[in-house]
Design a protein around this nucleic acid. Structure first.
Lengths: 230, 230
DNA sequence: GTCTATATGGAGATAGAC
DNA sequence: GTCTATCTCCATATAGAC
């Protein structure tokens, strides 16, 4: 085995751990299973990490940084905003179908994080990032289509994020492609109906267009740079 | 400790296990923690169950049978179908806020079940039941309001079930009440728009009102009696 | 630094007295 | 039937040779 830097070793172990969690679940992701997957010895593990908990933490941080980009992307051909949402969610469904174990691993890691007060914040930041991403995508789609949203974009983004989780969970259980597609189409159609033609006064770039948008302060908006993931 | 029948002991252990899982997570629900919660000795555990796995199976079956009723109920004051959906989901959100650990326990048990092919079917049946319940509630609400659904009820029910999961997951992470309520209101409004006034020809009780409803066969409708739980 | 070998603890499961 | 005491295994973590 060639020498690796401690950082490389940590990275390799995290990647191996993710594969093991995806394949057999977090509970079965023992240090032995992980080092076997990584082709290392047990001692190398404890050279790179102090404990298994520390690796799990690193694993959570890793997936938080990496997975955000798959949710919704801006380069969708969008004339109709409903279509943009539909294509974005369909793309996510394709991703889910292509690698269901990976998404289940994400869910398991998130739920694991919820059990610890300190890790809970990591999960919160992850969801905040999802939300910001969805919001930015919705804004961009609306701008290109020349429409504006009839209600706070934040609310629509929240529905999108929740829906993504819901589809993930139900599809993982039922494996019903058609049902997931039907739900996506229905939701996309709905969100499309929330868009109305933009007037000139709406063109102000950063004005919140709804009067009650300020009534509800964002409980967690401490992330000023939602674009820099990884 | 008084003598208990084996059945009573099993029941008591299952209930204790559920409390432990809710409080500390499935991974921490060791046999020792469970018998401590139930006030029994370790030997009593193995008198009632052959193994911990067997108890976890019983626990899954238990929650599958018990939790369905809380999702959507028919006794909601419904003139407007959108309001019925909104109130039903709000009621579920109240339940979630009142006992978040219990719902997280449900999620953990479901995900655990997904890891085993045999247990996967148990989870599938659970979701099938949720779906049937949602569908029946939607039908009942529409009938009372004198409206019909513009698209297959099945699709709307699927969206409801997925949305319930999504709201659960996102709320457990963010604990953002206002966001959950906004998502609920938006979804309810949407679903309300899927209802149109019923005509006389629509009054046929069990006719599928959409021409493409038969195009998608139900992948799992082997449960002829969704009402008889527990 | 990287390995083999081992210590330590906690988990599930059981033996055997009462 | 129910308990205490124990067995066995496996996981994490460490010691110490090279």
């Amino acid at each position: 085995m060639p020498r690796m830097s401690a950082a490389d070793r940590r990275e390799a172990l995290v990647r191996a751990a993710l594969r093991v969690v995806a394949r057999r679940g977090l509970a079965q992701a023992t240090t032995r299973a992980i080092v076997a997957e990584a082709g290392m010895s047990l001692a190398s593990f404890h050279y790179a990490f102090d404990s298994r908990d520390e690796l799990v933490d690193a694993l959570i941080e890793h997936v938080v940084g990496a997975e955000g980009a798959a949710l919704l992307v801006d380069e969708l051909p969008g004339t109709d905003v409903g279509d943009v949402v539909r294509l974005g969610l369909r793309r996510y469904l394709d991703h889910l179908r292509g690698d269901p174990d990976a998404e289940q691993a994400m869910l398991e890691l998130t739920q694991h994080a919820l059990r610890d007060p300190e890790r809970h914040d990591v999960a919160r930041r992850q969801y905040q990032r999802y939300h910001d991403l969805a919001e930015a995508s919705l804004d961009a789609a609306a701008a290109r289509a020349g429409v504006r949203w009839r209600r706070p974009v934040r609310d629509i983004a929240g529905l999108l994020v929740a829906m993504t989780d819901g589809i993930t969970m139900t599809w993982l259980v039922t494996r019903d492609d058609a049902a997931a597609e039907a739900a996506i189409d229905l939701l996309a159609e709905t969100i499309g109906r929330e868009a109305v033609p933009a007037t000139v006064s709406d063109a102000t770039p950063d004005a919140t267009e709804s009067p009650d948008a300020a009534e509800r302060p964002d409980p967690a908006d401490s992330d000023p740079d939602p674009g820099a993931t990884t």
